[in-house]
Design a protein around this nucleic acid. Sequence first.
DNA 1: TTTCACAATGTGAACGTTCACTGTTGTTTT
DNA 2: AAAACAACAGTGAACGTTCACATTGTGAAA
Lengths: 344, 344
Amino acid sequence: MGRKPTGRPTSFDIAYAAGVSQPTVSRALRGDKSVSEKTREKIRQIAQDLNYTVDKNASSLRSQRSNTIALLFFEDPTPDQSMINPFFLGMLGSITRACANRGLDLLISFQQMEDDWHVQYQDSHRADGLILLGYGDYTLYRERLDQLEEQGTHFARWGSVSMDSSGATVGTDNVQAGRLAGEHLISKGRKGIAFLGHAGEQYPEFAGRYSGLCEALKSAGIASDKSLQYDAITTEEAGYAAAKALVESGQSFDAVFAASDLIAIGAMRALAEAGKRVPGDVAVVGFDDIPAASLTTPPLTTIMQDVRGAGEALVETLLAQVEGRDLPPRKLPGKLIVRGSTGG
Amino acid sequence: MGRKPTGRPTSFDIAYAAGVSQPTVSRALRGDKSVSEKTREKIRQIAQDLNYTVDKNASSLRSQRSNTIALLFFEDPTPDQSMINPFFLGMLGSITRACANRGLDLLISFQQMEDDWHVQYQDSHRADGLILLGYGDYTLYRERLDQLEEQGTHFARWGSVSMDSSGATVGTDNVQAGRLAGEHLISKGRKGIAFLGHAGEQYPEFAGRYSGLCEALKSAGIASDKSLQYDAITTEEAGYAAAKALVESGQSFDAVFAASDLIAIGAMRALAEAGKRVPGDVAVVGFDDIPAASLTTPPLTTIMQDVRGAGEALVETLLAQVEGRDLPPRKLPGKLIVRGSTGG
DNA sequence: TTTCACAATGTGAACGTTCACTGTTGTTTT
DNA sequence: AAAACAACAGTGAACGTTCACATTGTGAAA
């Protein structure tokens, strides 16, 4: 179980074996065109035989580029232990893939809002840039974002695109997606559509979804009723509470558009307890299409965000920024997934 | 959006400002006792004022220690895109936390079985060690593990502890957990207990769970019936297929112990389609306690693995190995979570 | 033939730390 | 009072690359 007695080989060893100078080895392995095809191939072969790999630390130190990006998750101070929003976990997968495709390494870290994450990674040269992921109260981290920007840190974030953009942003077109949900419910003959989710500017994504819903209602000539909007952050508990409040208010409604699947799942629980049948009495639409959405009874109709596209877009946007060309913010369309909770 | 015109400060700048030599700065910031309390504090203060952080690359290069570990997920060649086993995602969270507590950075990467992951990370000095995560056919990657070990790579893996251990291993005590599940079902009066999951040595974890079940049956004086064991890998589809085969076989059974929650969920779907009621006709127990387990109807009774403990144990074991002291393999107990699928 | 350009490699330094020593002081021991 | 020893700080080198520039050889243009 001990370590190899002999140290691992360096580029000098390869150089010696190949009968060239050490920098030539470096050039060859990077695929530099100024090394002849022949020597390049020879060096590659020797490197492989000797089991040599470039030392990333030395490389990064000298070139001032780590080919690594850091992924920072953050949520409101997590109440319980480690219940991470499943949607972001899907995102993690797609970002990982996007990085792998480009030969980038990915550092990951979960952050509490209070931490001073804003200084750590890029400054210590661990990463060339940051990807920021997380719902939550926008106003809370707005300040940090500005600070990042001021520091000249490269970052891309997932979130609401519509806000006066702080840095490079990629997000779902929440208004379009909200409209999609609204139109679907309306097409099912529903008119009293409640919205569960914050609609204030602290939660611009939710607000976008709500205004999309309102647009759909308006287009259909239905008056939207502000009293049918109930605040909820993105947890199952919040959804349960909001739906319960809705039911107990005595207002009449025949559909619920939840700002996230977790909210929707909580809401369905509350509706069931209140004796409301889904979709008979109340149709329910969620948002995100998390894995659990297809496992509820009835299965949840929801808006799927383009997770795969998002990962690609985030990495691409960040990379562009690192290389000095800023890309415009990008909105990805949502897609309606029809399941049982709206009557199939 | 441009970069700071002036380069970021180095330890020399701090040294100059503090009126000491540069290595003293390095020592002070590492908390070296050989720097007097006074100067240490002074240097800390100046560093903070100047917004200085230690360059991780230089530090790692010189000290030959990256304070980073790499987390490698791998599964059987993923059929569809990025459906990652939710259980491992929970694990990711706990490992992240365990790393953060120790000031370690975490690199993550998803691997196809075919890739040559076994050489990459530690050799290039990106990471001090590897954590390997993934179910799957053991025989498939067994060879790679041996290779890693031979290379002197430090790694810890999550998996079956009982096998002739390749390297440092942490895992759930599958036999104990299986017994727990069996005892619970027996206490509910069930006697015809089917097991859905591979029981061969390619899947030692599943096999352990099965033998735990058999132990429980034996202790209760019930003969275990090998024909009630159906192979299934850990997906919802596999669970569906296995349960369907079970039903169609015409054998009588009144309980199902699934080797994973996904299998259980698939099985419940098949049972529902076959007109069997859960838990009335058939009680169901899963394994893992993934988030979706509490959202099914009825909610799924399951065995919870100690995810938090696992993350801690893996990181600790790995760290020990890096520091030259090998820790023995570790088994963590499973915990029964009783929900509706076994009658509450 | 001379000249210039270009392709291919070599040379020396630099990236920003940490390591192993060497010097200082000032305090204790005998 | 000399010797011994801490406690603290400084000096020079080293980690393994990549960079900027200098050097060589070769063939085409003059």
